[in-house]
Design a protein around this nucleic acid. Structure first.
Lengths: 151, 151
DNA sequence: GATGAAACTCCATGACT
DNA sequence: AGTCATGGAGTTTCATC
């Protein structure tokens, strides 16, 4: 990927609603050239989508936790992600190296809701869980610094 | 927060560039009423901003890891987040309950870059680190289901 | 790939209920 | 809080280079 595309990606990662007009000003291109590039980045999957960043406290999901899971039967099919998809409290699922197989990031309303969710996770994916509760989040969703590229 | 605001938040979390016109159609309100609500949600901090979701493989940061950190001197001032802010590879920093004090999410170019970053983290915050490498990410950034509210 | 212009759609604000 | 009206911006497409 090239310099101007990197700049566009950086700008849109920092402000997902920036207008094409402003992107054009920032990049020195015409509006239609920027438009074309953004559409191409979307089509190529470099830009996967756009999202509003939400204050989870404000929407009634103040409790965040990381849940590491491990299959109870190590010989069973490893389809945990599929089995957890329906649990909307599970915001992310990462397959990881190490003693456990996945790390989930979950957002719930309360400790009771977390307890219930853990039961659901264990039942749905036939796993044991280890939970780390988030006390506060100094920062999150920071935009990568794409600098001037590899090289 | 009330029903229509929840709906607006859900829609914008799923598509951060949705137009006010479409939000109006989805909510049954007029464009200006939606406009007013979105601005209020932004002002109240319920919506903290907007971001493009990026494919990290495509931008040359294919290696994700979780780094748990623990202070080497437990009596020292706990200002790790401040000390890590300048490391742009650190995408998120969560204070957590448990044996370790923070979990960081980092994105780097390569194993060598991770090694270098870990050295920087240890030096900057005077901590020990424990790193869990992400092999793949079945899903991430899922939108919360705000349903019809608490109750 | 980039550009400028045209047609169209959307945004943002003010007057009013 | 909401609607409607409106002028100003922003978006999208197209012919052209």
């Amino acid at each position: 990927m090239e310099e101007i595309d990197r700049r566009i990606v950086t700008l849109l990662a920092a402000d997902g609603r920036m207008s094409f007009t402003d992107l054009a000003k920032e990049t020195g291109l015409s509006v239609s050239a920027v438009h074309q590039r953004v559409r191409r980045l979307e089509k190529r999957g470099v830009i996967r989508g756009y999202s509003a960043l939400i204050d989870h406290d404000a929407i009634g999901l103040p409790l965040t936790a990381f849940v590491s899971i491990k299959p109870i039967d190590p010989s069973a099919a490893d389809d945990a992600p599929d089995r957890l998809l329906h649990l909307t409290a599970v915001e992310a699922c990462h397959s990881v190296a190490g003693d456990e197989s996945y790390i989930l990031k979950v957002r719930v309303e309360s400790p009771i809701a977390l307890e219930h969710l853990l039961q659901q996770i264990r039942a749905a994916a036939n796993v044991s869980t280890r939970t780390t509760i988030v006390l506060s989040t100094p920062f999150e969703h920071r935009t990568p610094d794409l600098g001037t590229g590899p090289g």
